[in-house]
Design a protein around this nucleic acid. Structure first.
Lengths: 338, 338
DNA sequence: TTGAAAGCGGTACCAC
DNA sequence: GTGGTACCGCTTTCAA
């Protein structure tokens, strides 16, 4: 059994109130008494029980985060940002992985609530409106992070996807590309962020006025889905003479490039490929992937900062925080000769 | 303020003991009373406060894990295994990232202890003997995971590195390679696992008896370190006619292959490259990397299972659990013509 | 089957 | 400055 505050008090020959005062530095204690207490603490190896402390103060210094899968590199980056900033404010992270299951997300929200977390960050990849209701009942600081969907009027942080998509398309055009395919997921769902991104792409294509938009739909968001679409893209190349492919997620771009590699299509000589996200592998893969940098770490950092502010009772500035993005020009895209 | 057990008791017109009994199902309660309580719980949206519960039961259902960096894919995989199995037993994960700092590791151990975690998994990349002392003082179930070093008599789980290294070298030899360089970190530290791995490699080379061992030292374990060694490896190729490189970590292999790509050396046509670990990127990269599969997920899963067993008071079988590995033959290594 | 009460390890208010 | 004590929300004897 570890030593308690009582043990310390007894050994030091003082009351537990006094011990509490010295460990919290909450009220003045005379030098001599302080020393006695400190000695007793040292001797017993006493460490305050945070659980007991939390029970009375209501401050658990815990923030719960529900992620889809920490194995996704972008998720890991966000979690890094969340944890690192959290630690700066003495907050610890309770990690839960939902693996994309709706019910699990809901269950974890309850779980975290019971564990008395002071805030929750939900890093989701699905749209789950029940979460919205549940969360609102909890009356707990909350941020919703989702790379694919949005829920209206829900606190979140991201880049401006419309602008990012527009800028990337403009960049490809600036390289001389005219027939540019946009590869995305076949998501006709109401809340898909892809709508914004497609709109950005579309605007740039329309401004160019020399070609039509070419949309190419995958089954999902993964590397495998990118790989599977390879054949279709090749047909597009043949039929519509596309010279560049703008993938709505790096994963799709990597999958596509793998397909090209396996089929002896050279990137970027035969076709340019760009991505979206700048996940870790984008700069490791060869050729390195031209992409849009979504600042995952910062998104996490800002999210938790927001939560901590709210815990401290500060008013929230605005619901949707938008962070700057960056077009990263690398070797997977090249100029086209006129 | 959320409802407490008292609120429920009052509303249901029973004592808090009774409420406690129905929520824990710990002692018989008459059907009618039970229903009243359940209704009250429902009406108030009551959820038991786990903190209060923990204070009396001493069971926090929390396991602390200290990692170097969740951004490393192998770390993320281990954490997945840890969390998933933990959840099966109702345990939650408190995540702390040390970023390889000794002092931080130590601090987190104290932190986790104060938060009353029931066990700790330290996923380290450095050797820190003070940790050993600290941990032992805590008298708390503990597992030490380290890909690079070991601490004697410390509970851990890994593959048999000597065997794995031996098998991989044998595989390369079976492809016809004779002059095989082993790329590793220049770690003359006492507790480096590299010693084992080098010994395995050496044994296979000696058994072949047709060539000498060729050791090649990098500055560290990262992709960049692998890249930097590229030039040296090329010289080895010229001078000693090496045809295969066995890298002690996938990261080094990927870095090396990047160097080769950037310098127009073809893998595997000009040189075969193999890795160690099977991190995520190994099977995504092109050419896919031949490597040794370290079952990261399983390592994490076994680690936490061990901890939970110990929490439950079961005796520990043995200190060092060894899991099976696998030689994954992919395209980065090819047969050599005689 | 139910209730009263002690106590888990702290904090904080109130007296002195 | 210091000690006494109520209380945080719950579990768990012990009696009734």
């Amino acid at each position: 059994m570890p030593a308690t505050i009582k043990d310390v008090a007894k050994l030091a020959g003082v009351s537990i109130s006094t011990v509490s005062r010295v460990i919290n530095d909450s009220k003045p204690v005379s030098q001599e008494v302080k020393k006695k207490v400190l000695d007793a603490i040292e001797e017993l190896g006493y460490r305050p029980n945070e659980i007991a402390r939390t029970l009375v103060t209501k401050k658990s210094f815990l923030i719960g985060i529900i992620v889809t899968d920490i194995g996704n590199s972008y998720v890991a980056q966000m979690v890094r940002g969340i944890e690192e900033v959290g630690k700066m404010y003495n907050y610890d992270i309770l990690l839960c992985s939902s693996y994309g299951d709706k019910e699990t997300e809901l269950r974890f929200i309850q779980l975290l609530n019971r564990k008395q977390v002071e805030g929750i960050i939900l890093l989701s990849e699905i749209v789950n409106k029940e979460v919205k209701e549940q969360i609102e009942l909890l009356k707990i600081p909350f941020v919703y992070l989702n790379r694919y969907f949005f829920i209206e009027h829900f606190p979140t942080v991201s880049i401006n996807d419309y602008d990012a998509s527009y800028e990337m398309t403009r960049y490809l055009i600036s390289l001389g590309h005219k027939n540019i395919a946009y590869v995305t997921t076949n998501e006709e769902v109401e809340y898909s962020l892809e709508k914004l991104k497609i709109a950005g792409y579309r605007k740039a294509i329309e401004e160019l006025g020399e070609s039509d938009e070419i949309l190419c739909f995958t089954k999902g968001y993964n590397i495998e889905d990118g790989y599977e679409i390879g054949k279709d893209v090749l047909n597009l190349k043949k039929d519509l003479n596309i010279t560049a492919v703008f993938c709505s997620h790096d994963e799709l771009a990597i999958g596509l490039m793998n397909y090209f590699y396996d089929n002896s299509i050279r990137v970027p000589e035969d076709i340019s490929v760009s991505g979206y996200g700048d996940i870790k592998i984008a700069s490791i893969y060869r050729p390195r992937l031209t992409t849009i940098k979504e600042p995952y770490y910062d998104i996490g950092a800002v999210a938790i900062r927001r939560i901590i502010k709210e815990i401290k009772g500060e008013e929230m500035d605005k619901s949707h925080i938008k962070l700057p993005f960056q077009i990263l020009t690398r070797e997977s895209c090249t100029k086209i000769e006129k």
